[in-house]
Amino acid sequence: MQINEETVKKVAKIARIPLEEQEVRQFAKEFESILSHFSKIEKVKTENNIISPLSTKNIFREDEIEPSLQKAEIFKNTKNQEGDFFVSPKIK
């Protein structure tokens, strides 16, 4: 496993986490040891099964109309409100 600073920058860009140079250096060093430890699981013999063996089943509710939240409640945790809308950044 070879994790270098370039790999960390690439992952950070995909994850949209801006990093300081010092964080890039630290993570490159740490990730190398963490991921090479993790990669030892490759040697374990397993079946090619990625479906959970737990016999759980989904539960459903009736599709009935229930009282919904009040507008004042919905906007309680934001400061970016304009009239009856949340303000969001532009998408372009």
Binding site: T7, I17, F27, I41, T46, E47, N49, I51, S52, P53
Partner: peptide, 27 residues
């Protein structure tokens, strides 16, 4: 970042899928 890495194309099979297989085996 670690969680993003193990799901990335090229690494997902060796890390994420393998981990799920181990979890299933353990269960």
């Amino acid at each position: 970042l670690l969680g993003t890495f193990v799901r990335m194309a090229g690494y997902k099979k060796a890390y994420y899928n393998k981990a799920i297989q181990i979890r299933n085996l353990a269960v």
